[in-house]
Amino acid sequence: MTEIPQPHPENLTPIDRSHMQVSDEEAIEIVGMNKWFGQFHVLRDIDLTVYRGERIVICGPSGSGKSTLIRCINALEEHQKGKIVVDGTELSSNLRNIDTIRSEVGMVFQHFNLFPHLTILENCTLAPIWVRKTPKKEAEETAMHFLTKVKIPEQAHKYPGQLSGGQQQRVAIARSLCMRPKIMLFDEPTSALDPEMIKEVLDTMIELAEEGMTMLVVTHEMGFARQVANRVIFMDQGQIVEQNEPEAFFGNPQNERTKLFLSQILGH
C-alpha cells in the first residue's frame, strides 16, 4: 500500500489548542437531509451534528456537494428532505425563521462578495444597523473593533475595489463578525487568493478558532485542517464518506476514495 503524504502546517502561526473547548451543546443538527438540483441528487442522506466550539473542515473533490451542504445551513439553498436545526430553530420555509438564523450564522464566501458601492466601514455597519437596529455610533465602534482585529482599521474609509484580495476577505470576515454570530461558515475562503495572501486570511481564521467560535470550513488547506480542526469530513458524490479527528483522518484514512483524494491533493 502506498503511503499517504502528510500535510505540513508548520508555515502557519502555531496555536495553543488547550482552551479550544468543545461543549456538548448542539449548535447544528442535520438529520437525513437530501437535496436535488432538478433531477441531480447533490446531497444524499446527510447526518451531521455540530457541537458548540467545534472547528470542522469539510473537504472533497469539486462537485462533491460540500459547498451546497454549508449553503443549506443558512438557507442560501433549500433542502427538499430531512431536517436542519440551527441554534435551536428549525429551518423551514418560514421567512422569519430564515432571517433569524441568517443573522446568527456568519458566512464568508470564496469571492468575498463585499458591497462595492459602500465603504469598508459601511459594509461592516450595514447589517447591525438595519437587522439588529444597533445605533449607528455603536455599530461603527463594533466595526472598528473587528477591523482592528483583522488588522485593517486604516482601510475603513476606502472602497472594496481599492483593497487587495486578502484584505477584502478579511473585511468579509469582519463584516460577518459584526453581527456577533454564534456560528461561522467558510465557503472556500482562500481559493480565490494569491498564495501570499492565503496566510493572512488563515491566520485570521485561526485566531477566531482560538476564541472558541463554532466554525464549518470548506477548504483545500489541509495544513489548516491538521492544525485547527477537531474534526475533518471528507465528502464525495453528495455523501459524507469519512469523518474523523485530524490525526486519524490524515494518519490512517480508511475509505479508498479518501486515500485517493488525500494522495492527489497532498502528493506533490
Binding site: 456568519g106 469571492h111 450595514l126 447589517a127 463584516r175
Partner: peptide, 18 residues
C-alpha cells in the same frame, strides 16, 4: 449584478426590501 451580492445580503440577515 453578480449573484454573490444577493447571497451576501441574504447571508447577513437582510430581508428582501432591505
Amino acid at each position: 449584478l453578480p449573484k454573490g451580492q444577493y447571497e451576501a445580503a441574504a447571508a447577513l440577515g437582510l430581508d428582501y426590501p432591505q
